[in-house]
């Protein structure tokens, strides 16, 4: 195809089948992960999440703390879900035989950016959560807890790597587009 707007379509049945499966898995995880965190917080109570994150336990808890804490606890997983939606878009394009296009590069870049944001949220949310959840504690037992785990740090690194790969993909898409205009 030589139309400048045409996409380079390739037939890779194995990869397309795998991509279809990964697209559905990404969508499933994008639903299950935030839903699990919300269920854990609002049904199981914040204690489980606070303990898992090594955060100080609240002595007294007002409803606004419970709601705000729940919203804060959801931020990293919501960003991760948004990243998974971008990944699903990428895999849907692969499934359709589109491997080199500006859309792929955009989706991959979006995935990378959201993974980085999720990693940043993973670093920033625990201190905020500790402040919110111990706000009603008696003076002297309020806490500001910092917790740096390997997961958010790895997410930041992983996001950076993906961002670089997305930049290479964008260049590859340009080349593929140019190649498609040579008869």
């Amino acid at each position: 195809m030589a139309q400048p707007t045409a996409r380079l379509m390739l037939s890779e049945p194995g990869l397309q089948r795998l991509s279809a499966w990964l697209a559905w898995t990404s969508l499933g995880l994008a639903t299950v992960i935030p839903a699990s965190v919300a269920a854990l917080w609002f049904l199981g109570g914040p204690a489980a999440i606070m303990a898992r994150a090594n955060l100080p336990m609240p002595v007294a808890l007002d409803s606004w703390q419970w709601l705000l804490g729940g919203a804060l606890a959801l931020v990293p997983s919501a960003l991760l879900a948004a990243a998974l939606l971008a990944a699903a878009r990428c895999f849907r394009l692969f499934r359709g035989g589109v491997f080199f296009s500006a859309d792929i590069a955009r989706a991959l870049r979006s995935f990378a950016a959201r993974v980085v944001m999720s990693g940043l949220a993973g670093l920033l949310v625990p201190p905020l959560l500790s402040v919110v959840m111990t706000w009603s504690n008696p003076p002297g037992s309020r806490a500001l807890a910092f917790h740096v785990g390997s997961t958010p740090v790895l997410a930041l690194f992983f996001g950076g790597v993906l961002w670089a790969i997305a930049a290479v993909m964008a260049r590859a898409a340009d080349l593929a587009d140019e190649h498609a205009q040579i008869v």
Binding site: M1, A2, Q3, E178, Q181, I182, V183
Partner: peptide, 22 residues
């Protein structure tokens, strides 16, 4: 061995290049 659409684009000079083979 090219499509008529591509030949049409070539005739109008709407391509970025032409292969030696073509």
């Amino acid at each position: 061995g090219i499509t008529e659409a591509n030949l049409s684009l070539l005739k109008r000079g709407k391509v970025k290049g032409i292969r030696f083979e073509t």
